[in-house]
Amino acid sequence: MEIYLLILLIFMIIGSIIAIEAKSLLSSVISVGVVGFSLSIAFLMLGAPDIAITQVVVEVLILVILIRATITMDNTAIEGGGGTFPFVVSLVFFGLFLVFSFFAVQEIPKFGEPLMRVSERYLRTSAEETGATNVVTGILLDFRGYDTVGEATVLFTAIVGAFGILRRRGRKKKTEEDAEKVGILEDEDIKKDFEGF
């Protein structure tokens, strides 16, 4: 069990190395897909089927969005590296980070033996108190509903932010009528400008 998890983790690290160092942006994006799908298998092995389902579908969407951003470029090859100085500096600092984190992970509970102070009560009483047999949903929507409200707020803000960045105002105004239109495109504009795919 744990040896499979280790193999999966090493596979993810190799995938992320390829994603970071690939010369073509498209292959880099697809290597991120390798990391994400392996991550969902790891979630499944760790007893979290809820998150595994979410991770699979979110990974598909992430690939669609990233490829959409990538094909904007005419030339997806990357010229030039990051330079020597940032490479050396980040190598030194991240090496230090890893050394400290190696000592830090000795202090937290061992793998396979979680603390579970609050969670034990959740596991014991969730079925009776909330009526939901899926404990994760019970926590998400009943015990800790505030967190979910915050999540909905953050997602809403991100969506509104993306709309605000991509909207039409702020471009060169051709007529007064164009200046009035904010954000949402009218139907005839869509038909006129984007025939087919």
Binding site: A48, T54, E151, A158
Partner: peptide, 28 residues
């Protein structure tokens, strides 16, 4: 059972990550 509390928090974090990624791509 495994610890359900981190699962509940990570579930929200994944979807937030998707929204933030879309925001970053829009800026890009």
């Amino acid at each position: 059972g495994v610890d359900p509390l981190p699962q509940a928090l990570v579930l929200t974090s994944i979807v937030i990550g998707l929204g933030v990624l879309a925001l970053m791509v829009a800026m890009c």
